[in-house]
Design a protein around this nucleic acid. Structure first.
Lengths: 190, 190
DNA sequence: ATTATCTATAGATCTATAGATAATGC
DNA sequence: ATTATCTATAGATCTATAGATAATGC
């Protein structure tokens, strides 16, 4: 007990990191503040010296999880790489370290207004990123293609995590990936 | 108190109907058994004379919600109608009466094994249905197209419910719908 | 006698708060 | 003196069970 202000900042950061991982794995209601605190190496009593409410942790954890997505988008500069990595079995099996837009998609319709606002802002950035990575097309504008592609990617990663049949799970990832690649790789040819 | 066996069957059906609606609106963890019972016009104490566990209610409610989807697919026989109805603001705003594959997508990765099995079986039927409604294509097989289309539809309806920005919500529905229609309407031309 | 439903509650959560403890930092 | 963290707990859930009540159905 009795820690410095620097220690508090480090504790705070550890709490948010644990939450950013566990919320993606278990959902926004899937873990309580006591368990998050314990995993961060502290006890539950200190929680409200760090956050005014549980929802404040949710919002900070979302922002942190989206920073992982920032870094991933920075390193991923072609359409093929984007799709092969996003719609992979490795990504499917590691939601805690993966895309928070995908992992928390189904939680957002029922999330707090503040959490939805953070999600919405980050989705807009990803739509702009995806628009930029698409090749120019003669028939349909890239913004519309980015929306279709984002819907399909988020839908497919969730479906691949939802089904009990491993063959179907793999088929969903592979076919969505292959269809999107062939669709936009030859976009000019349309 | 003191009701007939027929009354019990009707009570049972009412409980499952309430759950099928509320689970789609609020998520599988979004409402407790006491509130479901109260909405069905009975009290919580009788619950375990109807179900061995809460999860048994979840499984029955899923099956009932999927019957709504059966009926909808039976009445919907063209690709354009399918997409215009599914990716509409009316469907977005009425999850309790809408597609359970969409409403519960994000809950399934963390649901019980029995619930996931019911979801998986119904998804397979919808993939077969969607495959059948697609026009023949020269370049890619219809099964693969059905997977992409289903991923995009489920992703888009969830995104449209997730965002706080009404314009973006509407844009996601409209662009996903228009892109999919133009993609498969002219599939033969590829 | 059996049973469908009721009231009441045990026991296990979970969020939030109160007050103690042991450091930091003026 | 202030504060970061601790132990302990209040109060509000939620699932599941116990036992009472008032009908049904042999």
């Amino acid at each position: 007990m009795g820690s410095s202000k620097r220690d508090k900042a480090e504790t705070h950061s550890r709490i948010v990191r644990v939450a950013a991982k566990r919320f993606r794995e278990l959902g926004l209601e899937g873990i309580g503040v006591a368990d998050v605190m314990r995993e961060a190496g502290v006890t539950v009593g200190g929680f409200y010296k760090h956050f005014n409410s549980r929802d404040e942790l949710v919002v900070e954890a979302l922002a942190t999880a989206f920073q992982d997505l920032d870094r991933w988008e920075e390193r991923t500069n072609t359409l093929t790489k984007l799709l092969e990595q996003y719609l992979s079995e490795a990504h499917r099996d590691a939601p805690g370290a993966g895309c928070a837009l995908g992992a928390l998609l189904g939680d957002m319709p029922r999330a707090s207004r503040s959490a939805k606002a953070v999600y919405t802002a980050r989705l807009k950035r990803s739509l702009a990123y995806t628009t930029g990575i698409l090749p120019p097309s003669g028939t349909s504008d890239r913004r519309a293609s980015a929306i279709l592609m984002t819907s399909a990617m988020l839908g497919a990663i969730n479906l691949s995590r939802a089904v009990t049949d491993p063959d179907l799970s793999q088929e969903i990832l592979q076919q969505t990936r292959d269809q999107l690649i062939s669709l936009y790789k030859f976009a000019k040819a349309h």
